[in-house]
């Protein structure tokens, strides 16, 4: 009985400590608006030779990415070393045939963008995504541990997180080399390393990634920030992509399937 009382007392003391520890940094927990990589501003359809263009209002999907407080200077596209530029052009010119996501490949990091939901725990933060390739998740330890030394390379890499003031910084590395870092043929090597920064601006969250790949990139690519609005929509299981989908692609409508 005494042991139980002492235990309960210890927990009672611990609860405020846990709450305080969780409040020492901004709480990024919650659901965030779905924000696919550079969704198109218009849909182009060709039916029986007739071309129609339907403009898409993206304002609800993407916040204003300009002049975001705390954002680093960015460029819209990565800068490839001269010897790799022809490959990028080839991949871009044949994107509909070669983009791995058209064949149910994983978008990987950073292409999958900001998480749809974040669960911030004292020693780890978990990112949840919605994606037709299988609704992946990432576990980001925040307990100071180093990267795993014996992990296999993977699509979403090996991540560790830390707080730099009010900014949550995720260092991801150890990737496979068969994802793209963005549309337009942006391939990468297994030396890819991605640093994601997440912070709050008012009720919104900003996600900005920096891509380093000394093998193929001429310089680190600081991506444009994404201002992501909070969402009241729960996570929803995505329809599963099957590999036969690629042959059925007629246009880029799939960018806005969700």
């Amino acid at each position: 009985m005494l042991k139980r009382y002492v235990s309960s007392f210890a927990w009672a003391m611990l609860v405020p400590a846990v709450v305080l520890a969780q409040q020492a940094h901004p709480d990024l927990s919650g659901a965030w608006s779905y924000a696919i990589d550079r969704a198109p501003a218009a849909l182009k359809k060709t039916v029986n030779g007739v071309v129609t263009i339907q403009k898409i209002d993206q304002s609800a999907r993407h916040g204003d990415a300009t002049a975001v407080p705390g954002a680093r200077p960015s460029t819209p596209a990565p800068s490839y070393k001269p010897e790799h530029q022809a490959k990028v052009k080839h991949l871009f010119d044949n994107e509909s045939k070669l983009d791995p996501v058209f064949y149910c490949g994983k978008p990987g990091v950073p292409r999958i963008g900001p998480p749809r939901k974040i669960v911030q725990l004292p020693a780890e933060t978990i990112f949840f995504y919605e994606d037709i390739s299988g609704d992946p998740y990432r576990i980001v330890p925040t307990d100071g541990r180093p990267h795993r030394v014996n992990a296999n390379p993977s699509h979403y890499g090996d991540s560790v997180g830390r707080w730099e003031g009010q900014v949550f910084v995720v260092d991801a590395r150890n990737f496979v080399d068969d994802t793209w870092i963005g549309e337009d043929g942006y391939f990468h090597s297994a030396e890819l390393r991605v640093t994601e920064r997440l912070w709050k601006v008012g009720d919104n969250m900003v996600w900005q990634a920096t891509v380093e790949d000394p093998v193929v990139l001429a310089a680190p690519w600081v991506m444009p920030p994404r201002l992501v609005r909070p969402s009241t929509e729960s996570l929803e299981e995505s329809p599963k992509c099957v590999e036969t989908d690629g042959a059925k692609l007629l246009n880029d409508d799939h960018h806005l399937q969700r």
Binding site: S29, V119, I126, Y137
Partner: peptide, 26 residues
């Protein structure tokens, strides 16, 4: 994934395989 607040509003089950996805429990 359970203890992310003192009073959880969600729980999650993370699967390693076969597609590395999760279940959501309200």
């Amino acid at each position: 994934v359970q203890n992310y607040t003192i009073k959880p509003t969600h729980m999650f089950i993370l699967h390693e395989a076969i597609i590395h996805t999760y279940r959501q429990i309200f």
